[in-house]
Computed example of a mutant assay.
Amino acid sequence: MFFNSSKWTEAPKEDASPIRKKGAARFFEVLGRDGLSFYKASMLCCLGCLPGFILMALGFIGSSVLFTLLGGIVGGMLGAPFLCSLIDTILRSLRDEPGFWWVTYKKAWRQNWKDSLLPGFVLGLLSGSWLSMLMILPAMEAVPSIIWICMGAGLIFAAGLFTYAFAQIPLVHLTPAQFLKNCIFFFLGYLPRTLLAAAVQAAYWVLFVLFLPLTLPLMLVTGFWLPWLIAVMVVYQPLDTAFSVEEIIRHRREEELNDSMENHSMFGPRGDD
């Protein structure tokens, strides 16, 4: 069903994934262990999106649709590589993968930035359009309720679709058409999880926009990491089922360990020689 061109070497089928805590217990477990890594990746994501945020804010304050759309596109394209690197950090934590955060973060940024530009452009354009509508509609008279309903439904749909889109980028390298097809399969095939993840994302960002500028300090605390950590935790099981993430990473760890042992035996001390 799913397109799967892994960015790691595929592994043969092995034992089931390790037993882990679930729900809130798992959330606080990974947060306590890797919270600082989440925070640093989130702050970099905020900096990447900052030019777009500034343009969108100027457009919103000045009632300029052009500036709002431009800000969305700029923020989406500049921030997308940083967002993918944040998600990569989260995925590595959920896989309990060891390693130094900065080393893996830089590697993920270099690996994913090209694949992230088109989804970032589309997400930025949609975000700018949605914010523009939020700016225009209150000034209009007798706006039909169906318009607000469509805006809410569109927001939930986009949040669910882009959650899967950006979560795939650190895992696989696919064409835009394959990414879209996978997103639709994920969206419909795991609808309860999709709606939960989308509701988390939509609620967080709608509240952030509606209560600006009071919510600006929130970006210094929860930034991007909080909604994305919850959303990725929700959709992680479908991603693992489709892409065999746990099997791939276990196989990679074994290969790295074997390579390390071979290098040690080749270049290590030779005893009596």
Rank of each mutant, 00 (worst) to 15 (best):
F2H: 05
F2R: 08
N4M: 09
S5I: 08
A11G: 00
A11Q: 01
K13S: 01
E14A: 00
I19T: 09
K21T: 04
K22W: 05
A24L: 14
E29S: 01
L31G: 09
L31D: 09
K40P: 07
K40D: 05
A41S: 01
A41R: 07
L44W: 01
C46A: 02
G48N: 09
G48V: 03
G52I: 04
I54M: 06
L55M: 10
A57G: 13
A57C: 11
I61A: 15
I61Q: 11
S63P: 09
V65W: 12
F67Y: 11
T68M: 01
L70H: 10
G71N: 00
G71Y: 01
G72E: 00
G79K: 08
A80E: 06
F82H: 14
I90E: 03
L94Y: 02
W113M: 03
L117E: 12
L117F: 14
G120R: 00
G120S: 04
G128I: 06
W130G: 07
W130C: 06
L131V: 02
M133I: 04
L134Q: 11
I136L: 15
P138I: 09
A142W: 05
P144Q: 05
I146R: 08
I149S: 14
G152D: 10
G152N: 12
A153V: 10
G154A: 10
I156E: 12
A165V: 03
A165P: 03
F166A: 04
A167N: 01
L171P: 02
L180R: 13
I184G: 15
F186A: 04
G189F: 14
G189D: 15
L191F: 14
R193N: 15
A197V: 06
A198V: 00
Q201R: 07
A203H: 01
F208R: 03
V209Q: 13
F211T: 02
L216F: 13
L218H: 04
L220A: 04
V221I: 10
V221F: 10
T222E: 01
V234F: 09
V234T: 11
P238K: 04
D240M: 11
D240E: 13
E246G: 06
E247W: 12
I249W: 15
H251D: 15
R253D: 08
E256R: 10
L257Q: 12
L257N: 13
N263E: 12
M266K: 09
F267W: 09
P269I: 06
P269F: 14
